[in-house]
């Protein structure tokens, strides 16, 4: 069985895998930045008292969480051009990941902000701080610490979700595995190799999460 496994072909295809890996990394990074922006805006809308901003934010978050990412991706890739918006597949891919992940990021940030005890807000209100001052000086710095670990968890999910972009022919990591599988009929080699690369990315992000929590844990530990 293993004698059929061709390490040589893997080595031969390494440049392709390398390129795929690099594409996966930067498009995930870009998408995550996009997701943070989408998430912060959604979260700010969601924390308003009036329903005018809150209702659309909630509807959007529900819609994204209720539907498969693949369906969202297909809508943007196949549906948008029919509505008159033609975008390159890479842009569509990054847009889809940002819009999708943004909904989850919004909920992570909201949970972080709401986890700050009411007394913190009261203390800052009592000292005469404005809404912006107490968010900036008291609430967000504390919320930031509790949101970093789940945000990195979301980043890991995003990296794995980016594999779906292979279906709209973005030449990222999974696409490289597909090429090896179809060119040489070597699906075992192709998909096992990309799995290894995803595992590598996973450990990088996990290491980052560990570092950040240790770094954040030392500065001003709370009871």
């Amino acid at each position: 069985m293993l004698e059929n496994f061709s390490f040589r072909t893997i080595v031969e295809y390494l440049p392709l895998f390398g390129q795929g890996l690099i594409t996966t990394v930067w498009l995930s990074a870009l998408s995550f930045v996009g997701a943070l922006i989408v998430g912060i805006v959604l979260c700010a809308m969601n924390l308003q008292r009036g329903w005018l901003f809150r209702a659309p934010a909630k509807a959007y978050i529900d819609a994204v969480r209720a539907t498969p990412l693949l369906a969202q991706l297909y809508f943007l890739y196949f549906g948008l051009p029919r509505l008159g918006f033609v975008l390159p597949e890479l842009v569509v891919g990054i847009l889809a990941l940002s819009l999708n992940s943004g909904a989850y990021v919004a909920e992570i940030i909201r949970a972080g902000i709401l986890s700050i005890p009411r007394g913190q807000v009261e203390a800052s209100v009592a000292s005469g701080m404005t809404y912006v001052q107490r968010m900036r000086l008291v609430v967000l710095p504390q919320a930031f610490k509790v949101t970093i670990p789940p945000l990195l968890g979301q980043a890991i999910v995003l990296v794995k979700d980016s594999a779906l972009l292979s279906l709209i022919s973005v030449s990222e990591l999974t696409r490289a595995g597909q090429l090896l599988a179809s060119d040489r009929f070597m699906p075992a080699e192709g998909f096992l190799t990309i799995a290894a690369f995803y595992l590598l990315l996973y450990y990088c992000l996990k290491g980052l999460a560990g570092l950040s929590s240790r770094w954040l844990g030392t500065a001003g530990a709370r009871t």
Binding site: A123, A126, M129
Partner: peptide, 25 residues
Amino acid sequence: FVFQAFNLYPHKTALENVTLAPIHV
């Protein structure tokens, strides 16, 4: 206003707790 539960800012030192509002407000 002094609270029963103190409500100090846990991410700030004692001195920063005292100076935060004077500096920013």
